[in-house]
Design a protein around this nucleic acid. Sequence first.
DNA 1: TGATTATCAATAAATATTTATCGTTTACTG
DNA 2: CAGTAAACGATAAATATTTATTGATAATCA
Lengths: 224, 224
Amino acid sequence: MNKEALFSIPLPTIRRFPAYLRLLKDFENAGESWVSATRLAEDLRLKPIQVRKDMSCTGVEGKPKVGFEVHELIMAIEHHLGWDNATDAILIGAGNLGNALVGYKGFANYGLRIVAILDNDKKKIGTTVYGVTVQSMEHLEETVVRLGVNIAVLTVPAEVAQEVAEMVVAAGIKGIWNFVPKNLTLPEDIIVQRTDLATSFAELSSRIKKSIEEKSRTKRSLQN
Amino acid sequence: MNKEALFSIPLPTIRRFPAYLRLLKDFENAGESWVSATRLAEDLRLKPIQVRKDMSCTGVEGKPKVGFEVHELIMAIEHHLGWDNATDAILIGAGNLGNALVGYKGFANYGLRIVAILDNDKKKIGTTVYGVTVQSMEHLEETVVRLGVNIAVLTVPAEVAQEVAEMVVAAGIKGIWNFVPKNLTLPEDIIVQRTDLATSFAELSSRIKKSIEEKSRTKRSLQN
DNA sequence: TGATTATCAATAAATATTTATCGTTTACTG
DNA sequence: CAGTAAACGATAAATATTTATTGATAATCA
């Protein structure tokens, strides 16, 4: 049995993987072949111990005094994320956000490729978004089967999200990256990943609010 | 002293606030004035106990048998996030993602308003994005001061992110919502919130990978 | 009006995650 | 070629977060 299945990597660690990956690739491009956890931690504003813990999840072993081999880490992290083979996906909903996502070059780094765009707006069907032609939703199932796609990116209006989600599942999709701020009710075995801008903005807002409150508290206590 | 400053709300709770808020507003629009934690949990696929814990952080008290008053919860959550007053922000970088964000209607729900767009691409300067005119970066400081803005949304290319970040800080910005996949090194008192699509996609990827592995494991054990 | 039930609040237990400690290893320096 | 310092790995402690338990309360219904 291979070691990777023996324990499951903590979610926070997985969420930090992309940041590590990007930084490691920067190092690789700069010609550095070894990097220490200390160095990674510095650049990412994390603690060295945490980076070491995270790296240990990849199975890569470091060397005292010099750290880890950059390329080895890159390979290991990409492997753990399944980013070593390109993943094809379809995108449903050629609106604002949908178009921006298709044009987002960063996806290439994660091995994600949008191979088809679907929409039910007749004005959009037939137009081209960054080289990909928008198709009618009627072609959904046929497209999924023909391209052998497992993942759908959902960027439709909230009102139709549930309905569209059920359609893509019926067409054979196994994983949905849901950008619509709406919870989907789908069969257990369908993997739904929700990305919500509001989550991140809530964090920012609360930090700003706290900082303002602290400032006014300090001011007040100075006045006493 | 008011109760809210006595303890700090856990980050995971804050990150769940927007989802609660959206759902609560749905209930409000549907004319429901009371909702139970059980009900919220069901819709969001959380456990009732967790919802109750989260709600207790807002300071709102529930009533046995009926739950919480919808409007009261909405007000409390919005207050805790500072979403009860509209927050103005400028956006730097009128690229793909930048434009999509400006057009994203959802921001209105969080009280976020993009009041100015800046870019240094001469082709973009003077054009209008969803009613907001793109200005030259030369107007940065003047704009920040004139509009009294504290927050900047950063959607510039990675190569210039650090440089631009330093510029906006120099112009007086206190909080940065960074969509660029690059860590910024800025003074301690500047609040930087990074939003990274890759983080979410990493989560999805790893879940899909795990599910595939489980399936193949099951298959194998069935063959034995 | 009293029994029943859904729900809340408070407290405690369990789990997950981060951080610290300590001993060991390896490159580098004089 | 020994001493030193940087960094690793394993283990343990601390902290944060989630989940369970228990008792109390208020609406509902017989």
